[in-house]
Amino acid sequence: MALEVLDGGWLTTVQDLGRPGYERYGIPLSGAMDFLALRVANCLVGNPPGAAGLEITLAGPTLAATEPCLVAVTGADLAFQVDGREMPMWMSVFVRRGSVISFGGRRRGCRAYLAVAGGIEVPPVLGSRSTYLPGRFGGLDGRALRPGDRLPIGPVSGHLPERAGRKPPPHLIPAWDDCPTVRAVPGPQDDHFPPEGLETFFGSEYRVLPISDRMGYRLEGPPVASRRAEVISDGVPPGAVQVPPDGQPLVMMADHQTTGGYPKIAVVIMADLPRLAQCVPGESRVRFRAVSVTEAQYAYREMMGALEQWERTRAE
């Protein structure tokens, strides 16, 4: 059982929920940038939350099913099609043997997720199937999909056509904004910035530059004044906003470097990282709103609670 890659799309990689536990060796978490969308897609096809799927960036791939399969596409709207006919997103869809999955073009968002019942069973590296492009490991030989690849699919049981048509509750389908305001907790080095630096950062709109990628989002806007150009390199989590000497913020994403030496003015909260992940390089603008750690943690609990409650009902 496999999906044959006829066209890899602009940048399509195998991702799961990442590779935790190795940051002290310099290996970042990686995994789906919009981890919520991947989890919803997995649940729709009956996979466990951490099964590997495809992260599809901006322009989708073309895939042929060698056997009947059940798929779901979530995240960005790239005009999901089967045999040239547009199919609903955020729903499990039965795909016949020999059918072709393709994408008509981008309408909204940056990253779509395709889950297939059984999961994509490339060999795990350090416990994860996530592709880490800078290190050229994980996923399919550490690289993006290209024509001629075969994606092995894990075993599935039961009658697949019966499982088509599943949808998540509406509150798990995000309402997107091309210019989102994302919440961030100030610090840990906010004391390296004068009050006007923090005011600029939390009061301005920033453009997401075209060179933004899975490692980090480079922003452009009013420069953030800082007191110090560098700190002694220390640990940097996903969502951390570093401010280099030119004052243009740099947000660490899934494939972030694990340590860094620029002062960190704030950290984007987990509940809002998926929305940032859907911002389109070269197009989207973003604003930041300061929140307390506790507010951020309650937002995370609420988001994950809603997701897992639904996942549990589907598993029964």
Binding site: A184, V185, G187, P188, I232, D234, G235, P237, G239, A240, K264, V267, V268, I269, M270, A271, V293, A296, Q297, A299, Y300
Partner: peptide, 14 residues
């Protein structure tokens, strides 16, 4: 110090 909502940092010096 808090580092977002999923981490903290313990600084021992500069």
């Amino acid at each position: 110090l808090p580092v977002g909502d999923t981490a903290l940092v313990v600084e021992f010096g500069e």
